[in-house]
Write a protein that binds this DNA or RNA. Structure first.
Length: 496
RNA sequence: GGUCCUGUAGCCGAGUGGCUAGGCAAAGCUCUGCAAAAGCUUCUACACCAGUUCGAAUCUGGUCGGGACCUCCA
């Protein structure tokens, strides 16, 4: 079975065929680095991380471009840390590039904490002013743009005469024109729906560049068109982003691309859905906005404690990227337990010494092959991670039954065991990018010390000295380490 | 007002016209010195109303909720 993706441009699931065999060009709208990213942004970036990883898993060579928006309409009012009422002394107010630097670094730290693979190219808007100016010049030449007093606007109505503005979002321009409000600078435009390609800078705009039309800064939608064209070509495979960017951002992007070179950019458009907390959209005004790192350190009144990045990621993966997801504390707790179950099963099978020698294919082998095939089939079906995880839990169940003796070692062949181990491992770590927060421990000094305690406890139990054995177990438990007595008299330990 | 999405068990969530998703929670049993973990079993739901069909959670129409976008937003 081959990969199918839901293309929001055509509103249907389509077979994915890359333009260049074995290669994929992937563009995702990145963060605006004027503030901390939202957890919703995090979900989007985690979703595309999974998509990127799965494409690689399938054997594609992927060029993954995710921009950093560090130019645009920043004014003193919006720049954090800049207080207009205070001294305007140069060193006391933040330079725009200091803000950009601060939040770019912070963004990368978060992406790293959540174990996402960096894009192969991460271009900045400020680094591509020249390309953006060139694109505006082409749009002017092609007659889809006009200049008014140092600003350049995209002529939506003229574009719509020849092409289809609204092809992505399903809107039509008459309704749009009727519904628009009066905003600053509207009187310059030929029509209310025209959008800025270049804006003349007023003095309070602290980021501005020279252009053929005077000092100014690029429009909000232009950078993605310019940079995707530069790095992926006039047509490329996948363009991704959050649902809320569909209109106007992505619609404008398509218009700019078509107006520039008659090509609409991406062949497949993928949109991730919104994330709610306790049934509500997270927003600062509702007081329910939680930052990504606050989930990790638990430093927020709506959270009971911190959760490992993989827990949040696992929670994301348990629903489909294009579904709305409502998260809450119970969901986090559930995800933590579920993830632990999978990780422990993976640990168990990893250090296994069953001495399986059979090469005969058994019933269980066939079941394992089916589950492994299901995992791929689910992922091929528009990256259905939720369903894939359901299959991984079946693996966990088989592993636990083998461990508990409900399934005998002779019921599985070494090839079957191998397939189980590699499949579980590759989905957990390679495709989903989860981390085993408890692992890493085997064979280190802590483990040696734990073995000592375990041996003392075993002796105590053998002498029926349950006071001592319970003391060891209870005090370790209080320290965040849990001991498990196993059937064969063995003991294992884990954090948490 | 316009464009679109959505309603699935106690909770979260997959779901392709017929085939019990899965996780968490709960109950019982097995194992256990006691726990924990694990295994087995139980809980069979699709907002409402009509229609299409041999058969609808799934398709169509309507009603009622919820949400997103239309304005910087993932």
């Amino acid at each position: 079975m081959s990969l199918k993706v839901y293309n929001t441009l055509t509103r249907q699931k389509e077979e994915f065929k890359s333009i260049t065999p074995n290669h994929v060009g992937l563009y995702v709208c990145g963060p605006t680095v004027y503030s901390e990213p939202h957890v919703g942004n995090l979900r989007t970036f985690c979703s595309f991380d999974m998509i990127y990883r799965y494409l690689i898993f399938l054997g594609y060579k992927v060029r993954y471009v995710r921009n950093i928006t560090d130019a645009g309409h920043l004014t003193n009012e919006r720049g954090e840390g800049v207080n207009r009422m205070e001294s305007q002394a140069k060193l006391e107010s933040l330079e725009p590039m200091e803000i950009v630097q601060k939040y770019t670094v912070s963004f990368h730290r978060i992406m790293d904490a959540f174990n996402t693979v960096p894009p192969t190219i991460e271009p900045t808007a400020t680094g591509h002013i020249v390309e953006q100016i060139e694109m505006i010049e082409t749009l002017l030449k092609n007659g889809f743009a006009y200049e008014v007093d140092g600003s350049v606007y995209f002529d939506v109505k003229k574009y719509n005469d020849q092409h289809n503005y609204g092809v992505l979002s399903g809107r039509n321009i008459d309704e749009l024109m009727a519904g628009y409000r009066d905003l600053d600078g509207q009187e310059e435009k030929r029509n209310s729906i025209d959008f800025a390609l270049w804006k003349k800078a007023s003095p309070e705009h602290i980021m501005q560049w020279n252009s053929p039309w005077g000092k100014g800064f690029p429009g909000w939608h232009l950078e993605c068109s310019a940079m995707s064209t530069k790095y992926l070509g006039e047509t490329f495979d996948i363009h991704g982003g959050g649902m809320d960017l569909k209109f106007p951002h992505h619609e404008c992007e398509i218009a700019q691309n078509v107006g520039n070179c008659k090509q609409g950019g991406a062949k497949y458009w993928l949109h991730t859905n919104m994330l709610n907390f306790n049934g509500q959209k997270m927003s600062k005004s509702l007081g329910n906005s939680i930052l990504p790192m606050e989930f990790v350190n638990g430093n927020h009144p709506l959270l009971d404690k911190g959760y490992a990045p993989s827990v949040l990621k696992f929670l994301f993966l348990q629903s489909h990227y294009s579904s709305e997801l409502d998260i809450n504390v119970k969901g986090l707790q559930d995800a933590e337990k579920g993830l632990k179950r999978l990780m422990e099963a993976n640990d168990v099978i990893g250090n296994w010494e069953l001495g399986i020698s059979s090469n005969h294919k058994t019933e269980l082998d066939i079941k394992i092959e089916t589950i492994a095939a299901n995992c791929k089939e689910c992922m091929d079906d528009d990256f259905n991670t939720a369903k894939t995880i359901g299959n991984l839990f079946e693996f966990a169940s088989i592993i636990n039954s083998l461990k508990g003796g409900q399934i005998k070692p002779e019921e599985i062949s070494s090839a079957g065991l191998d397939l189980l181990i590699t499949t579980l491992h590759s989905y957990l770590f390679d495709v989903f990018g989860l981390r085993n927060e408890n692992a890493t421990i085997a064979n280190n000094k802590l483990d040696d010390a734990m073995q000592l305690l375990i041996n003392i406890r075993k002796d105590a139990k053998a002498k029926k000295d349950f006071v001592t054995s319970d003391k060891i177990r209870n005090e370790l438990s209080a320290a965040g380490i849990s001991l498990k007595d196993e059937k064969d008299g063995g003991m294992s330990w884990s954090l948490g």
